[in-house]
């Protein structure tokens, strides 16, 4: 377990992390929008379930679909949280590049601060600091934290949930357990990979169930939710919602190369 960070060191680390993050991201706030960003925001803006029927989406020539015609496939890929968030965000702040990029830049910043805390607690402040800097220097992170897409929300909610889980296990404060439940609801509303983490979390909590006095309802409801998710995934798969032309072929060589180079694929 990492030692408590001296206050001065903590402030210096935080200033360096925040400055470098913002120096790299802020100039990109006006970056032109790309395909996925426009689909995630603009199309939903004009064709979400909440919009009026008279509001029509762009004439999407090749892909003539909108939320109304495509919601099953869309929900199969991403939970609708971000679309709903952007629906209201765009109504408040408009759909300019700066407006669309602001939420992701802020969430990316919060994620890096969380990472610093988490890294410092578990591996010491040096490791936490350098991992946070590495994340803000990674081009994958730079791209996603300046793009109005789902990606940047995912590590943020994962780190927040991990931190909350850890504090709950340490302090046994029941309030943190409820915070964790709220984070879990956000997690599964943001991305489906979160279900993997939800299973791990539930197994951990099962071992501590007597100490923490966790009700049986939790241990019954989580497996039900996970089973429902698996059923929905199988149905979506059978309907071809996950079939993309650009997915890699799964021959043995590609598989091995992918697995060996997985960390570098994710970081670069």
């Amino acid at each position: 377990m990492g030692k408590a960070i001296p206050k001065r060191k903590f402030i210096i680390h935080l200033i360096i992390i925040l400055s470098l993050y913002l120096i790299i991201r802020v100039p990109l706030v006006n970056k032109p929008l790309q395909h996925d960003e426009i689909y995630n925001t603009f199309v939903y803006l004009y064709a979400s379930p909440l919009s009026k029927a008279s509001q029509k989406p762009m004439n999407l020539e090749r892909y003539d679909f909108s939320w109304r015609t495509d919601w099953k496939r869309q929900i199969a890929i991403h939970p609708p949280f971000l679309s709903i968030l952007y629906y209201f965000w765009v109504r408040l702040f408009g759909d300019s590049e700066i407006s669309l990029h602001m939420p992701v830049i802020i969430v990316g910043l919060a994620e890096i601060i969380l990472l610093y805390f988490l890294g410092s607690i578990f591996f010491g402040s040096d490791v936490g600091f350098l991992a946070a800097l590495g994340t803000s220097f990674s081009i994958a992170h730079i791209e996603y934290s300046t793009q109005a897409v789902y990606a940047i929300f995912e590590p943020f909610i994962l780190l927040a949930s991990l931190l909350c889980l850890y504090k709950f296990v340490i302090t046994k404060n029941k309030k943190l357990f409820y915070d964790l439940l709220i984070l879990n609801i956000f997690g599964i509303s943001i991305y489906y990979h979160y279900f993997v983490y939800l299973i791990i979390q539930t197994i951990i909590l099962w071992f501590y169930r007597k100490e923490f006095k966790i009700t049986k309802i939790y241990f019954i409801s989580v497996p039900i939710i996970v089973i429902l998710f698996i059923v929905v995934t199988v149905i979506c798969f059978s309907r071809g919602h996950y079939s993309y032309e650009f997915w890699m072929r799964s021959d043995f060589k590609t598989l091995m190369i992918t697995i060996i180079s997985l960390p570098s694929h994710i970081i670069r």
Partner: peptide, 20 residues
């Protein structure tokens, strides 16, 4: 068919923690 490794982007901060 294999999905894009970037779908696991959410692991980036944890991978960097492990690396450092």
């Amino acid at each position: 068919k294999l999905g894009n490794p970037r779908n696991f982007f959410y692991l980036l901060p944890i991978y960097l923690l492990v690396i450092f």
